[in-house]
Design a protein around this nucleic acid. Sequence first.
DNA 1: GATTGGCGGGG
DNA 2: GTGTACGCCAATC
Length: 801
Amino acid sequence: MELDFYPLDASYAVVRDAPVIRIYALTASGEQACVLVEGFKPYCFAASQKLALEELKQGLAKLPVFKDDKPVSFDLEQSSLHLLGREIACFKLIAQLPEDIPLIREALDAQGLEALEADIPFAKRYMIDTGLVPLALYRAYGEQVAGIMKVPSFAASRIEKISDQAPGNLNVLAFDIETHSPLGKFAVAEENPIIMLGFASESFQKVITWKSFKTELDYVEFVPSEFELISRFKEIIDRQKPDVIVGYFSDGFDLPYIKARAEKYKINLELGPYNSPIIIRKGMMPSAEIAGIIHLDLFKFIRKIMGRSLETDSFDLDSVAKELVDESKDKIDFDEMNRVWESRPEELEKYCRYNLQDALITLKITHKVMPSIIELVRVIGLPMQDVTRMGYSQLVEWHLIKRAREFGELVPSKATYSEIRDRKSKTYEGAFVFEPEPGIYQNIAVFDFRSLYPTIIHAHNISPDTLHCSCCPSELFCKKKPGFVATVIGDLIKRRMSVKQMIKESPQDKFLGARQEVLKTIANSMYGYLGFFGARWYSIECAQSITSFGRQYIQTVIQQAAGAGFKVLYSDTDSVFLLVGQKPREEVVSFVASINKQLPELMELDLEGFYRSALFVSAKAKEAGAKKKYALLSESGKLQIKGFETVRRNTSIIAREIQEKVLQLILTEVNHETALAYVRETVSKLRRREIGIDKVIITTQLRQDIDDYDSIGPHVAVAKRMRLLGKRIGPGTIISYVITPGKEKISQRARIPDEAGEYDTEYYVNNQIIPAVARIFAVFGLKPEDIIAQNQSKLDSFFNA
DNA sequence: GATTGGCGGGG
DNA sequence: GTGTACGCCAATC
């Protein structure tokens, strides 16, 4: 018989003293199934730098390994694998059970021998060694056997890949709980009940609560008590049979909470097709898993992986929803919700809507990011459960582990604590940044190296295993044998190029877009990984060689640009800004071509585009131009602003607006006079109080408890006032305030916007507007006091006319 | 300026 | 589960 299936996840069980791999699968027809594989054996390696092969073998033959005083048996097999490119005396130790491996490792440790690859979990080991990739299509040959729990099972004697096709539709069920909590405090599972439980999937919506009220909402279901609410959680998951359940911070909140409440009531909360308990891993990063159901914590994935590409720096559901699906959550006063729950259940409807909304938004975001998750799973080759909880360095590392064996490489061990401390103390030179001459320039061309660091790694064979090879004594990196990391990254780059080619043919395929994005992400993370203190393939020599080559390449471009008669305005890491001036554009194009002719395979300098104008400002207290701080105006009139740090929080809207407008005017007009007039006009308006109070509100986040502050800044003073008014203020609260006129200290003049009345115009002129634009006007020789000078310029009168 | 401590997310 | 955890900002010396 055969069975076509998509692996979702894998684990193992010990049956009659032998491990059996269980592949949790979705059949091609969309049913849950379990594919069983016997005969895969746990193993690790023992290696020695000092001992000869024969000595090592003899040592291993009498290696004492015991489990409860009984000897543990294992087989020995000579291995010819390398460690970081070097030959090493090495044996494979093949055990009976996965649990024997840690015992073998300890025994090796005790003999002063190194255990290698003894920390790769058994089910992952199976997937890596057999090349089984989740969410691709496989065919198993074998026979139907008695089902594991509620799931039809299939004992496979052989498995082969059929295609890279991902399953069409995963059944995703989002869930969310609301809890009761004491006034002003956060709920704790030991004391406070779950009051609502919401679900949302493509075809299903429900909110369960245990106090009834009159409602028209058809998705609300009443149960008699929290006990039944938790029982319904299990029933609904059993009935809906989701492939994926998703929550927002459900690793750290919802699932641990549900589990704790179930334990309190002694409810047997065995979930899903395999009657699996919720397993909570505590620690710095708690996680929750349910064997046989993929549990996705959307928060964790967004924060660790997607966060980098998002604008928001806060990862609460509301901010993330606004950015990713253009939706926002209703505002809820939780103290009010708790009071309603306690004494006015007839008003609970609003909170049921809120509960469902959370689940719906979570579902919507999940659908939006699912292509990225699926592609990440397929590129890394490990289950969704795992890859959505990894950071970049772990993703890179598992990708390398997945490919190590093809290169005859052993997976290096993790660094010890002292090695890590050592590595952390080491630094090295980074990228080259060209200091721009402050000023405004017209007609600019911008170039950048496409994937500079990844292509350098590939082009120069940079890899921990090619470093100081024995065959090329005068070279830093081997010239003969392709390195492991260098080849892997070359493959990533080439795969991405071919995917981009496919995108040209079918541009609307969102999976292709996600795949090239994932391939880029992994490739771009490789440099950082090599210099990351926790990396198995850590190599500071590799990391510093990469930046060193990067500096050489960019400086070569700069020199040749100068040689070709271009003035170099600016350069940072992988980009160069040139003044084109009156030169014909063909010269720019042929300049790029001449550079590209000299570059090694896969390296390429792109002409990113032409710009109408650019502004560089000077660094604080320096003549030289500031690095990483400039504004560009594209040919289509689009403004790009980089690094102006006044455009941040602690800044009022008026200050941000004026900064952007000033840059816009200066870049468009290519002089500062209109911008200056605009600033003066705005200052006049502000002094006439024609600027609304909403534009002068300053917001700051409270970092600690109010009473813990020693220095009372304006936001702390206002927070105290808010507390006096009965508002619940704690760490994390965003405090909005306005500075009002007066002679006292700033903090004493800060007011809640509603209570402010009027604002202090001179404070806003001197502390918000001028600092926001001072550096820009300094480029034109204006001092801060010149900006709003009393002697009027002619343009000023032009504006007032 | 380095170092340390706490928090994020969730209700 | 053959395992392990992070990274940033603010306060503080």
